[in-house]
């Protein structure tokens, strides 16, 4: 499994959003996309998924161009940020919608589909929620449901737009651990984040976007550096490693 973007560029009319972005990911790799507000992180994700068309460049899955139709969405899943309250479907109904790309236009979910839905529900540990209405869930619960729905498509590439935004501390950690767990199973995961520390804790690779300059891409520790963050965000930071029980934890602290 290999997912790559080659010299991808996008512009809204005259206004260029990003230019010549390239990266390449193998199965099990996690890419974190960072950058200041308005630099085009979500636009980049939407271009990767084909929801927006790149002005220039290519997105390749296993060397093949993305088709934009059902067959693409059998291999790729996207969890957008939710801006409105979801419809009042039950959690199970919502997760079942993830099977859409595998079901014919006039079809309805089969027993086989329901089995896969159950697996996604178990994987995310939301079986106890499955009869609850989606519009009555907490933010953290809803985000897990959205990821379960994405998993129901059985994708090999999972793309998440700010999965841990707006969640409390515990739920943020939960999201990051979910991402790590999925990558350990061989999935390629791409996620946007506002937190350099989360990128360091989770991702293998990072893409740091800036508003007017070329993005920086590479191994996460080479990209998330004090210099690069000052450049991109205009904030001075201190990156320190703390050892605890034989593991290294990195913290990113803004300093004056």
């Amino acid at each position: 499994m290999r997912f790559e973007i080659e010299k991808g560029s996008f512009a809204y009319g005259e206004r260029g959003i990003f230019k010549e972005i390239s990266f390449s990911l193998e199965g099990g790799e996690i890419l974190a996309v960072l950058g200041p507000n308005g630099c085009g992180k979500t636009t980049l994700l939407r271009c990767i998924t084909g929801l927006l068309k790149l002005a220039d460049g290519k997105v390749l899955l296993d060397g093949q161009s993305m088709t934009g139709d059902k067959t693409q969405w059998q291999k790729m899943a996207y969890v957008p940020q939710l801006h409105t309250l979801p419809p009042s479907y039950s959690v199970r109904e919502m997760v079942t919608l993830g099977r859409s790309a595998h079901i014919g236009l006039f079809g309805t979910p089969s027993a086989h589909d329901r089995e896969i839905v159950q697996r996604a529900v178990d994987e995310m540990g939301i079986d106890s929620l499955s009869d609850k209405r989606c519009d009555r869930l907490s933010g953290g619960e809803l985000q897990t449901v959205m990821i379960a729905r994405a998993l129901a498509a059985e994708p090999s590439v999972l793309i998440l737009d700010e999965p841990e935004s707006g969640l409390d501390f515990r739920n943020q950690e939960l999201m990051l651990s979910i991402i790590r767990r999925l990558s350990e199973k061989g999935m390629i995961v791409i996620f946007n984040t506002h937190f350099p520390q989360n990128a360091l804790a989770t991702a293998h690779k990072a893409l740091l976007m800036s508003r007017d300059e070329a993005p920086v891409y590479g191994a996460v520790r080479e990209v998330i550096t004090a210099d690069n963050i000052r450049h991109s965000f205009g904030v001075d930071v201190l990156i320190t490693d703390i050892e605890h029980n034989g593991r290294i934890y990195s913290t990113v602290t803004a300093v004056k």
């Binding site: 929801l51 139709d69 801006h83 419809p87 109904e93 919608l97 859409s100 790309a101």
Partner: peptide, 20 residues
């Protein structure tokens, strides 16, 4: 098409990313 109605009621990006 009754099952598709649930997908079409979602946001545009969600519906499209479910392969419809």
């Amino acid at each position: 098409l009754r099952w598709r109605l649930d997908i079409i009621a979602l946001s545009e990006d969600e519906a499209a990313s479910l392969g419809m």
